[in-house]
Measured scan of single mutants.
Amino acid sequence: SQTQRTQDENEARRIAEEWKRRGYDVEVRNRNGHWEVTWD
């Protein structure tokens, strides 16, 4: 799996939607004030 971090929730949601469209299983988490998008 791969993880991308961002400070911006909207960006995190956009990234998550992009990977979901490509057929990946995606998880979005808030950790210590930043957002992590993990896909595999």
Rank of each mutant, 00 (worst) to 15 (best):
S1G: 12
S1L: 13
S1A: 13
S1W: 15
S1M: 13
S1Y: 13
Q2E: 07
Q2Y: 12
Q2R: 14
Q2A: 09
Q2V: 11
T3Y: 10
T3L: 10
T3R: 07
T3G: 07
T3S: 10
T3N: 06
T3D: 04
T3M: 12
T3F: 12
Q4A: 13
Q4G: 05
Q4V: 15
Q4N: 06
Q4D: 05
Q4E: 09
Q4L: 15
R5C: 13
R5A: 09
R5L: 11
R5K: 10
R5G: 06
R5H: 10
R5V: 14
R5T: 12
R5I: 15
T6N: 04
T6Q: 04
T6D: 03
T6G: 05
T6V: 14
T6W: 08
T6L: 11
T6Y: 15
T6S: 06
T6E: 05
Q7C: 14
Q7N: 12
Q7S: 12
Q7M: 11
Q7I: 10
Q7V: 11
Q7K: 14
Q7G: 09
Q7D: 13
D8W: 06
D8N: 10
D8Q: 05
D8S: 11
D8I: 04
E9D: 03
E9V: 06
E9S: 04
E9Q: 06
E9H: 05
E9L: 08
E9F: 09
E9I: 07
E9M: 06
E9A: 07
N10I: 10
N10H: 11
N10T: 11
N10A: 14
N10P: 07
N10K: 11
N10F: 12
N10R: 11
N10G: 11
N10L: 12
N10E: 14
N10S: 13
E11F: 06
E11T: 09
E11K: 04
E11I: 07
E11A: 07
E11C: 11
E11G: 03
E11L: 08
E11V: 07
E11D: 07
E11N: 05
A12P: 00
A12K: 01
A12R: 02
A12N: 00
A12S: 03
A12Y: 02
R13M: 10
R13V: 06
R13Q: 08
R13A: 05
R13I: 09
R13N: 08
R13H: 09
R13Y: 12
R13W: 13
R13E: 05
R14G: 04
R14H: 06
R14W: 07
R14E: 07
R14D: 05
I15Q: 03
I15L: 11
I15G: 00
I15W: 14
I15Y: 04
I15V: 08
I15N: 01
I15P: 00
A16L: 04
A16S: 05
A16V: 04
A16Y: 08
A16E: 06
A16G: 05
A16M: 06
A16P: 00
E17T: 06
E17M: 08
E17W: 08
E17Q: 07
E17K: 06
E17N: 08
E17S: 06
E17R: 07
E17Y: 07
E18H: 12
E18T: 07
E18Q: 09
E18V: 09
E18R: 08
E18W: 15
W19N: 01
W19V: 04
W19A: 04
W19L: 15
W19D: 00
W19H: 03
W19Q: 03
W19I: 05
W19P: 00
W19Y: 13
K20H: 08
K20Q: 10
K20D: 03
K20V: 09
K20N: 07
K20Y: 09
K20M: 11
K20S: 09
K20R: 14
K20F: 10
R21N: 11
R21K: 13
R21G: 09
R21A: 13
R21I: 08
R21H: 09
R21W: 05
R21L: 09
R21P: 00
R21F: 06
R21Q: 11
R21E: 08
R21V: 08
R22Y: 05
R22M: 10
R22Q: 09
R22S: 04
R22F: 06
R22I: 05
R22G: 03
R22K: 11
R22E: 05
R22D: 03
R22T: 02
R22N: 06
G23V: 00
G23E: 01
G23C: 10
G23Q: 01
G23P: 00
G23M: 02
G23T: 01
Y24T: 01
Y24N: 02
Y24R: 04
Y24W: 08
Y24G: 03
Y24M: 05
Y24H: 05
Y24P: 00
Y24S: 02
Y24A: 04
D25K: 14
D25A: 12
D25H: 15
D25E: 12
D25M: 13
D25F: 13
D25V: 13
D25R: 14
D25N: 15
D25W: 14
D25P: 06
V26K: 01
V26M: 02
V26F: 02
V26C: 06
V26T: 06
V26S: 04
V26H: 01
V26Y: 02
V26D: 00
V26Q: 00
V26L: 03
E27A: 11
E27P: 01
E27N: 09
E27D: 09
E27Y: 11
E27L: 11
E27C: 14
E27F: 10
E27G: 05
E27T: 14
E27H: 13
V28Q: 02
V28C: 07
V28E: 00
V28N: 00
V28R: 00
V28H: 01
V28A: 02
V28W: 03
R29C: 11
R29W: 08
R29G: 05
R29S: 10
R29E: 06
R29H: 13
R29N: 10
N30T: 08
N30Q: 14
N30R: 12
N30K: 13
N30Y: 15
N30P: 07
N30E: 14
N30G: 05
N30S: 09
N30H: 14
R31Y: 12
R31D: 09
R31E: 10
R31I: 15
N32P: 03
N32D: 13
N32V: 04
N32G: 12
N32R: 05
N32L: 07
N32A: 09
N32T: 04
N32Y: 08
N32F: 09
N32K: 05
N32S: 07
G33A: 03
G33Y: 03
G33W: 02
G33Q: 03
G33L: 03
G33D: 07
G33N: 06
G33H: 03
G33T: 07
G33S: 06
G33I: 02
G33K: 03
H34Q: 13
H34W: 15
H34V: 15
H34M: 15
H34E: 12
H34D: 07
H34L: 14
H34G: 09
H34Y: 15
H34T: 14
H34S: 10
H34N: 09
H34A: 12
W35E: 00
W35I: 02
W35D: 00
W35Q: 00
W35R: 00
W35H: 01
W35A: 00
W35N: 00
W35K: 00
W35M: 01
W35P: 00
W35F: 05
E36Y: 13
E36M: 06
E36S: 05
E36R: 02
E36K: 02
E36Q: 05
E36T: 08
E36W: 10
E36I: 11
E36C: 11
E36F: 10
E36D: 04
V37R: 01
V37F: 02
V37H: 00
V37L: 05
V37W: 02
V37P: 00
V37I: 10
V37T: 02
V37S: 00
V37A: 02
V37K: 01
T38A: 09
T38G: 03
T38W: 11
T38V: 13
T38E: 06
T38M: 09
T38L: 09
T38N: 06
W39N: 03
W39G: 03
W39T: 06
W39C: 02
W39I: 14
W39E: 01
W39S: 04
W39P: 03
W39M: 08
D40H: 15
D40E: 13
D40F: 15
D40R: 15
D40A: 15
D40G: 15
D40I: 15
D40S: 15
D40Y: 15
